[in-house]
């Protein structure tokens, strides 16, 4: 149990997917201007990533590995993720409209969120067990959400600041993201 907690802490804080591994930067900058969208995106990523992590692990273990098709991993995973997102979207739309309303607009964006694909690949590269994969998928996604929400908080503040013209919007966002990554250095060596 303790191992899993350590693993989770490591994935959420120490090796934060976004700030330490640079995955998922596009949605990070795109959906962090408002707190609501940040929370929505964070939830959507957690939701999809846990499912994607589980399914890709199973595919790797029971389909690709036995047949020696590891080199097809990239294409297999991206197709799985893309169709999973489609499926989740349809499912939510029909059965849980309230949740769909909250997450709906973010779901298509997730296909091209490299954090999702990245975590699935990391799980395989690190040779995690199924349970470990679930834990890491959830924690990486939670780390992504955490960074996103913190970033949105800061960004809401600087939105109205008198930022010099050439730095407006994305540029200042990137610098702030740098500060965010710097702050997360605090957790180095903690797990």
């Amino acid at each position: 149990m303790g191992d899993y907690v350590l693993l989770a802490i490591s994935c959420i804080l120490v090796n934060n997917i976004l700030l330490a591994q640079y995955l998922g930067c596009c949605p990070f900058l795109g959906t962090s201007k408002k707190m609501e969208t940040a929370v929505g995106m964070g939830m959507a990523v957690i939701f999809v990533l846990v499912m994607a992590g589980a399914i890709t692990w199973l595919i790797e273990a029971y389909l690709l590995k036995p047949f020696g098709l590891e080199y097809l991993r990239t294409i297999a995973f991206i197709l799985v993720i893309a169709s999973l997102v489609q499926f989740v979207e349809m499912f939510l739309k029909k059965s849980i409209p309230a949740l769909y309303k909250g997450l709906g607009i973010f779901l298509p964006l997730i296909t091209t969120n490299c954090a999702v694909m990245g975590v699935c690949l990391i799980n395989i590269n690190e040779e995690y067990t199924f349970i470990q994969s679930l834990v890491t998928s959830f924690s990486y996604a939670a780390g992504f959400g955490l960074a996103l929400v913190l970033f949105a908080g800061v960004r809401e503040r600087i939105l109205l600041a008198r930022v010099p013209k050439p730095l407006e919007d994305t540029a200042i966002g990137l610098v702030t993201a740098g500060m965010l990554a710097l702050a997360f250095f605090a957790f180095k060596g903690m797990a």
């Binding site: 330490a20 640079y22 540029a171 740098g178 500060m179 250095f185």
Partner: peptide, 19 residues
């Protein structure tokens, strides 16, 4: 070459580009 530097550097280069 650390992660924060990457973000800050890209941000500043973007600023240069805008200028």
């Amino acid at each position: 070459i650390e992660a924060p530097g990457a973000f800050v550097c890209l941000g500043l280069m973007l600023c240069m580009m805008n200028l």
